[in-house]
Design a protein around this nucleic acid. Structure first.
Lengths: 224, 224
DNA sequence: CTTTATTCGATACGACTGTATCGAATACGA
DNA sequence: TCGTATTCGATACAGTCGTATCGAATAAAG
């Protein structure tokens, strides 16, 4: 038998290279040769790892999606384990949506890649399918977070939490808002701070809503 | 002199062809030859109209942006002229944001194009500049609409309208929400109806917020 | 050591791409 | 009517793309 290689590790490394290049030139702008050079492997190696370019891009977008979802879950665990500390359900939700929005400069590259892949998905059905499953998982996670925040708020004020349908609508709105803000920051229409402020103000409004009909005098509204 | 042609008309026709093709294969996927064939002109004619492909794409995205903004303004005029009818400021705002979200199936192509161009703008600075100016205009328009809706609601309840900064934040959130929903519909993660419902429920929440701190018992919440 | 299955890097190929060039056709000004 | 400036469509060109192919190198099995 020939020299045995760790294909998984290699695929990951190639995916990493794809991400870097796709962030700089868009998914269509990356060539297999550039990827190979960036990943320090030969063109043939790339070809043996992925049957086609499309398959490579598919793997790469899954890679990014997993990383983001992983960070979201990590933030959930940090705040959710000790529900008495500063990590209330509302705080966990805020951290999650901030993570998804990819506002921080260090994640700007991921934001560009994600945006580019979403756009390309409008053309490539298999890519669309991959992204749909990512969003489906994200939505379920957010529905749960919203519901938890709602019961928390409702319990504090002695009211009933909203319906599951309402929670789902709020979750969808949050994800869409985060995605939209991501695009606006990548575009340069909004700065990182402006987008963050917008996001936080909407979260504050959501908290008020979830608490029941009581307007709640002292909600900390974030000015900017 | 040679046969004189209407360049403006030709550029528009070419831009139309670019839009159709870019909607199907993405902006990178359109070739000058395909554009020429679609617009029923020769390759040379396209080259004479636009110095380069980039310039052509720039013109095309401006074309789309103008069409959308035009529709938004048209909806504004329809509802704003008679502020006693069903066209309250809030209704005008709703129509505007719905138009921007490009949810209707007949505008799906425009939605795909816009998404693709936003993604490409992350790579092409001149394209980003063009889109930024489009968003800047859109934001000013929405700030105005939100402010009008706020004064309307505040007057009805005898309270003071919010600050200009608050209105701007709401406007930005609305645009981002609309953009995010556009993407989710194009992707197939949400149906047109789901996105519309999400949008309307957020608008209802915004109306409550703008009315002052009174929770207002009978706001028509739209279930889905 | 020999055999054999597998991976290696390189190179070849055909199909595009955007751009440049060019002679013919055209229609106005003199 | 002649001259000329301009537009026309076609073709040439250099480059890149993704993919296919191929002999050499490699390492486990017999």
């Amino acid at each position: 038998m020939p020299k045995q290689v760790d294909y998984e590790e290699r695929r990951r490394r190639i995916a990493e290279a794809v991400c870097v290049l796709a962030g700089d030139h868009g998914p269509e702008g990356v060539g297999l040769r550039d990827v190979a050079a960036r990943a320090r492997v030969s063109l043939g190696a790339v070809q043996r790892c992925f049957r086609s370019k499309e398959e490579m891009l598919l793997f790469a977008v899954g890679h990014v999606g997993e990383r983001v979802l992983e960070r979201v879950r990590a933030g959930e665990a940090d705040g959710g384990d000790r529900p008495g500390r500063g990590g209330s359900a509302a705080a966990v939700l805020e951290r999650a949506v901030t993570e998804v929005a990819l506002l921080r400069a260090e994640h700007r590259s991921e934001a560009r890649i994600w945006l580019a892949f979403v756009a390309r998905a409008a053309v490539s059905p298999p890519l669309a399918e991959a992204l749909r499953s990512s969003y489906a998982a994200l939505e379920e996670l957010f529905v749960r977070l919203v519901a938890e925040a709602a019961t928390e708020a409702a319990h504090a004020e002695g009211r009933a939490a909203g319906s599951a349908a309402a929670h789902r609508r709020e979750a969808r709105a949050l994800i869409a808002l985060a995605d939209g803000l991501t695009g606006h920051v990548v575009l340069g229409h909004l700065t990182e701070e402006e987008a963050g402020s917008t996001l936080r103000s909407q979260l504050a409004a959501l908290r008020e809503r979830l608490g029941g009909s009581a307007p709640s005098a002292g909600v900390p509204d974030c000015r900017t």
